[in-house]
Design a protein around this nucleic acid. Structure first.
Lengths: 169, 169
DNA sequence: CATGGGTATATGAAATTTCATATACTAGCC
DNA sequence: GGCTAGTATATGAAATTTCATATACCCATG
């Protein structure tokens, strides 16, 4: 294994640099690697990660609008619209319009979609338990609590009443 | 504001559904919204978020290989290679090959690049302090500690000796 | 020191994402 | 009711990302 004599690089040695104490950096690293660890299961189910996110967002829901799905799955509106259309072509979700506001599109998961992610949801929960195990019940609960609070404070900040979906840039 | 009589949707009411207690969901939400909050500053500096990530990764570094940058900025190798080429065209980074291993490309930030992100780095640190303020010193430190540990446990898991860059799928 | 297997990055073609904008609709106002 | 402003989603063209693979190089081994 070749030693690099010129620089200290890579994630392990971000020490001493700006990033090493930068919260958003570590949040995205943690989010990325933990999600990534689960991606092989998702791929095995024949789904991309984005597709999994959308289907997981619809799991146990009686339907979500495109806008709500944008916030749940963290995608921009045109991206999500097209992804949903692809999922519909595979008959994993269905689209109809809401009774109340006819501009809205209500997306629901189909039986075929449920079947596709059923096992994944269970595996996801098991994976989470594995990930959190080393920290113990209390720390784990505290971590999730803080994350939720961060989202509550910073989710769609200053956007009350505006088009939240479009704010996902 | 129209009430939706059909479903309880959107982030606020993920209650009672799988996602509401799913750590990776909250990690990505927190990561997304907090980063997003900073994106207007990044845009004001004339950079995309991906460009900011790469330049921030190079800040204070004597140079990073493409592979190391992939892990720092969480991008797949071809994506990063092309982004770096675009940054080079703008003279924000320079590319040369390493002495040791001539396959490697060493990327460094130029003076122009430093100038471009100088203010941003300061703003980023200020932003982080704002974000963490409500939690207090101790909780904040604990949060970062846990995130670092998660990354240490799960970053490029089971990939020792393999091509880490390619593992960023 | 030639050979074979593995690593680091580059690149073309295909797929996806993004931006800008169009379309269809709701809501408040006169 | 018709108008104006604003919201929700769709869509085309352009930009980017991804996959698959090519290229150049390193290293161990015979």
């Amino acid at each position: 294994m070749a030693e690099n004599h010129e620089v200290q690089s890579s994630v392990e040695s971000a020490r001493d640099r700006f990033l090493d104490e930068y919260l958003p950096y570590w949040l995205s690293q943690a989010s990325y690697w933990i999600s990534r660890e689960f991606q092989c299961e998702v791929a095995r189910a024949g789904l991309t990660f984005a597709e999994w996110r959308v289907l997981a967002s619809l799991h146990g829901s009686s339907g979500e609008t495109i806008g709500a799905l944008c916030r749940l799955a963290l995608m921009k509106q045109p991206t999500l619209s097209k992804l949903v259309q692809r999922l519909q072509a595979e008959d994993l979700v269905a689209r109809r319009s809401t009774k109340g506001d006819r501009r809205q599109t209500l997306v629901t998961i189909t039986d075929k979609g449920q079947a596709r992610i059923g096992a994944l949801v269970t595996q996801a929960q098991a994976h989470q338990r594995e990930v959190l195990r080393p920290f113990g019940e209390d720390n784990a609960r505290e971590l999730v609590r803080i994350l939720k609070e961060l989202v509550r404070e910073h989710g769609h900040a200053g956007l009350v009443g505006s088009n939240l979906a479009d704010s996902l840039e």
